[in-house]
């Protein structure tokens, strides 16, 4: 009882935070007090206060406005890369689960080999081939995370395939395509959503990391990772430059993880609801 109320409060908090974040990202031009790229050189390193709520950076740019605009790239990366990963993952996973033998083996070997590289390292490699920039980063992250979904979908599809209701549907004359879309896909979506939520958080972290390394979002476009990169040299002098973007990043990742965990508890039949 107690446990579930704590987790549902956390869930509520996470959802509220993300809704606010999403709204801020959409309404960025309206709510941000300054342009994220305007340099107020006379007000460099201004501490948080009246004029600049969260202070300014080394070029005198408003920290708050940059964070709001930075949420745009963070969420965009999450949405696009997770979509790419889910699309590739479901397609490959279902094909692998329905075909037997050699096709299954080849597909899974391919997926496993992608999975065997350290994520950041592979992301850096892919980005250095595709070139720097947000679009390249999103594609790279999407491709890199697709094996996670492919494995998940394949395993789920293999087990759903043997469910009695699939047999019943076949006995009623349903063609294979119908069975995939009507019976297999809907019943594995729950697990996919949980995984997507966690992957969303991971892809935001990777985008931030790549931007921090100078491979992701290119200046002067605002991004949390880029802000942290700029803040690196002024940790003592202007701590607000690193604390706020770092906090936003951590909260976002935490929220997605909380949502993922709560959902996975909710849909897992083995955890008995009290």
């Amino acid at each position: 009882m107690k446990r579930s109320s704590v987790s549902s409060r956390l869930m509520l908090g996470a959802v509220i935070y993300l809704v606010i974040l999403g709204a801020a990202a959409i309404a960025a031009p309206v709510i941000s007090p300054y342009s994220p790229t305007d340099q107020h050189l006379e007000n460099r390193f201004a501490p948080p206060g009246h004029k600049y709520i969260l202070g300014t950076d080394n070029f005198g740019r408003d920290n708050f406005s940059r964070m709001i605009y930075g949420s745009r790239s963070a969420l965009l990366v999450g949405i696009v890369s997770v979509s790419i990963a889910v699309t590739i993952g479901i397609t490959v996973g279902i094909i692998a689960a329905l075909s037997t033998g050699i096709i299954d083996n080849i597909l899974m070997l391919l997926m496993d080999s992608v999975l065997s590289f350290p994520t950041i390292l592979l992301a850096i490699t892919v980005v250095s081939f595709l070139g720097y920039g947000l679009l390249q980063v999103m594609t790279a992250i999407g491709v890199i995370f697709s094996p996670v979904f492919a494995r998940l979908v394949r395993a789920e599809a293999l087990s759903i395939k043997t469910e009695e209701y699939v047999e019943a549907s076949r006995a009623m004359g349903s063609p294979a395509v119908k069975i995939v879309f009507l019976h297999i896909m809907p019943n594995l979506m729950g697990k996919v959503v949980v995984q997507a939520s966690i992957t969303f958080a991971l892809s935001i972290v990777i985008e931030a990391s790549l931007s921090y390394l100078g491979l992701g979002t290119q200046p002067p476009t605002p991004s949390w990772g880029l802000m942290l990169k700029d803040a690196r040299n002024y940790l003592v002098q202007a701590p607000w430059m690193s604390i706020y973007p770092g906090l936003a990043l951590a909260m976002t990742v935490l929220s997605f993880n909380i949502i993922g965990d709560t959902l996975s508890e909710k849909i897992n039949p083995r955890i008995v609801k009290k």
Binding site: E164, A168, N187
Partner: peptide, 24 residues
């Protein structure tokens, strides 16, 4: 054969709870 299944020859199974898709 697929066209015959369900149309000409249909089946009723042993455990009704397992033979319906739970998400539909």
């Amino acid at each position: 054969m697929r066209k015959i299944r369900g149309r000409e020859i249909a089946m009723v199974f042993q455990e009704p709870s397992k033979y319906f898709n739970p998400s539909m």
